[in-house]
């Protein structure tokens, strides 16, 4: 069944804040197994698109399907890395405890994480190079380390599709490498990954699929076919030139 269905299918999606549309009639098909960047200027609705797909905000029109079914039925297939700045890092908890939160979805209401979940959380921390910080208070972590904890939390969700909201935002070199390695690993495992991305220079290097977004969808498809000055200019509104490697 999976082979036939696109990983993500968005139809006529419109989202508005206080009656002002921030996403306008978005149609988007994301095939299984791609690493996709969503690019666009500030206020283009990139985070909003992810949040609408994940049901965090309600669209005023349109529908979303994950492998052909509504998100609510497919939650367990989806992992999410929110923007690092969206939470209060002074919250009294440790790195491993934050990672454990990734297991809450599969556990469902009331049931607590046990040994199995704890083991998964530690493995995920190891993958992002944060095992030695497992009992560190999250406020005592650097920005990059906090981002890696968020990444580990998504990994324990053990999903088929991952959504990451600006994971490269303000991170150090170690973290950037860790994220890239994870992305590669996820691609190798056949996962679909959607990343809100700001650094246009690195799009061709990190991703094989791209969506240009500015309230409306400008273009979507393979990086090698559509990542060009024409689409960049349409998206960013100015005569945009980017040095595309190769």
């Amino acid at each position: 069944m999976k082979e036939q269905q696109p990983a993500i299918q968005v139809d006529d999606l419109t989202v508005a804040y206080n009656y002002k549309p921030v996403l306008w009639d978005i149609d988007l098909t994301v095939p299984e197994g791609v690493l996709m960047a969503i690019v666009g200027p500030n206020g283009a609705g990139k985070s909003t698109l992810i949040k609408a797909i994940l049901g965090i905000i309600d669209p005023i029109a349109g529908s979303v399907a994950i492998y052909g079914k509504p998100y609510k039925e497919q939650r367990k297939l989806v992992g999410y890395v929110p923007q690092k700045g969206s939470v209060d890092w002074d919250f009294p908890t440790t790195a491993v405890d934050v990672v454990l939160m990734g297991t809450y979805g599969k556990l469902g209401w009331i049931k607590r994480p046990g040994k199995k979940e704890k083991k998964e959380a530690l493995e995920a921390l190891e993958k992002v190079g944060m095992l030695s910080f497992k009992n560190r208070q999250i406020s005592q972590l650097s920005g990059g380390q906090q981002q890696r904890v968020f990444l580990a939390r998504a990994l324990v969700q053990d999903a088929a599709i991952y959504f990451m909201d600006e994971p490269f935002q303000g991170v150090d070199a170690t973290t950037e490498i860790a994220i890239i390695n994870i992305l590669k690993e996820l691609r190798k495992a056949g996962k679909t990954v959607v990343v809100v991305h700001h650094d246009l220079q690195t799009v061709p290097e990190y991703f094989d699929w791209v969506t240009f977004l500015n309230v409306k969808k400008i273009a979507t498809g393979p990086v090698k076919d559509i990542f060009n000055d024409d689409n960049l200019t349409k998206t960013y509104g100015i005569n945009y030139k980017v040095a595309i490697n190769k």
Binding site: G55, I56, T93, Y104, W109, R112
Partner: peptide, 22 residues
């Protein structure tokens, strides 16, 4: 006691909590 985990995740990260179905 019953909803400790739900209280924790929804307080710390409402976005993730919502995506997880809590």
């Amino acid at each position: 006691f019953l909803f400790f985990k739900e209280l924790k995740v929804s307080t710390f990260d409402a976005g993730l909590s919502s995506a997880l179905g809590i």
